[in-house]
Simulated assay, not measured.
Amino acid sequence: MRKIIILAFTLALIVSCNSKNGKDENNVVLTDTIASNEKNEPADSISVYEGTLPCADCEGIETILKINIVDNKFELSSTYKGKQPEKNFKGRGNINTERGLEKDPDGTIYILNWDKPEKDQVYYGYYSKNPEKLYLLDRNKKMIKSKLNYFLELNE
């Protein structure tokens, strides 16, 4: 049952990315957007988190999340590994932050698509003592309790 819930949450994550067709032509636009922002913004304004999230019916979801804290924008790229053909999804949107993650009042929660309906929002968060590890959160903005790794790591 937990795998079904996790799969449903992952699918909601992908649907929320507003990917129109998943074709490679979208990749160019997204990459160019971040690249142009990198030229205009200080280097520390864009954080890139990477990792492989669990997948119920594949080898894992290779995920890259780029956060531009100056413009409050994000780009999310997900590739389902071990599928033939591999499925790639890309999306971008607006991001907002909230203070406090579980018992850490100084932790941070990122709300992807915060300006969309709640069903389209995705939550990631980090603890103040370890901002290099960004956790995928559940619909209640809580840590996903599992032995599997639901986190991305800061790529410096």
Rank of each mutant, 00 (worst) to 15 (best):
N155E: 15
T63S: 07
D120C: 06
V122D: 07
E75S: 13
K145N: 12
I144T: 13
N96G: 14
I5P: 07
I46D: 01
I4P: 05
V70K: 10
K83G: 01
N72H: 13
V28T: 10
S78M: 14
D44S: 07
K119C: 13
E25G: 05
L30M: 15
D32A: 01
Y127N: 05
I4H: 14
V48W: 12
K81A: 08
K119L: 13
D32I: 08
R2L: 14
G125Y: 11
P117W: 00
A56I: 03
D115G: 00
R99V: 00
D57G: 01
V28R: 04
D104E: 11
N88C: 10
D104Q: 06
D57S: 04
P117E: 15
S19T: 13
L76A: 13
D24H: 05
E59V: 05
W114M: 06
D115N: 14
D138P: 07
L53C: 04
I144R: 13
L112C: 04
Y80D: 03
F89H: 07
L136H: 10
E62T: 10
T108N: 04
Y124A: 06
E153M: 13
G91F: 15
N130F: 02
V15D: 11
L137V: 06
D71M: 12
I69D: 07
Y110D: 02
N37K: 12
E102W: 05
I144L: 07
L134R: 02
T108D: 00
V122L: 07
P54M: 06
E62N: 08
Y127L: 11
D120F: 08
K142L: 14
L76R: 09
I111K: 14
K141N: 01
A35P: 02
